[in-house]
């Protein structure tokens, strides 16, 4: 009964599947430190780097730290470190598709817009429609015009 490719494991014996207790504690402490770091970073106004505005750098730092934390949890706590090649492909494919899904955002740059009834004023509960509040500046008008405050949604 030979080992099938399905169960091929890069680490071999069963005992290596256990993480030492010290490693688990270390990961927990590292996650706590990273959490403190992300809280601190959110209160710091980071400078812009070249054409990239500072606020984008701020957001990249926040998402970057969250991604490192997630990677630590996935790799150590969720045991992907010891998982078979098949299981790893499954995990990577899942997050790859999530990444690709964000390409949908490009679609919103191709739309025309119409006014949303009820968004004429900033006063809430004026009896108007607020169900589809995809407000964007109308085409050809700078974003500081009153129409922007009134509200427009893609057609």
């Amino acid at each position: 009964m030979a080992t099938t490719p399905l169960s091929a494991n890069s680490h071999g014996d069963h005992a290596s599947h256990e993480l030492p207790f010290g490693t688990l504690v270390g990961i927990l402490l590292l996650l706590m430190v990273l959490m403190g770091l992300t809280i601190g970073a959110s209160y710091v106004t980071l400078p812009s780097v070249g054409p990239i505005p500072g606020i984008v750098i701020n957001n990249l730092v926040a998402v970057g730290i969250a991604t490192i934390k997630a990677a630590l949890v996935i790799w150590f706590f969720m045991g992907v470190k010891f998982a078979s090649a098949l299981a790893r492909i499954w995990v990577i494919a899942g997050f790859l598709v999530l990444f690709l899904m964000f390409g949908i955002l490009g679609d919103y740059g191709t739309r025309k817009f119409e006014q949303v009834n009820g968004w004429e004023t900033n006063v809430p509960h004026n009896g108007g429609e607020t169900a589809l509040p995809r407000v964007w500046p109308p085409e050809g008008k700078p974003s500081s015009t009153p129409e922007v405050e009134q509200g427009f949604r893609p057609r």
Partner: peptide
């Protein structure tokens, strides 16, 4: 076939579910 294959099947199955959850929450993050 053996305990390794069985364990792997369970783990891959669970990750399949978790990947659907990633897409589920991913749409909201989008």
């Amino acid at each position: 076939e053996n305990i390794e294959q069985q364990n792997d099947s369970y783990i891959v199955g669970m990750w399949t579910f978790l990947v659907t959850e990633v897409m589920f929450f991913g749409a909201l993050f989008l």
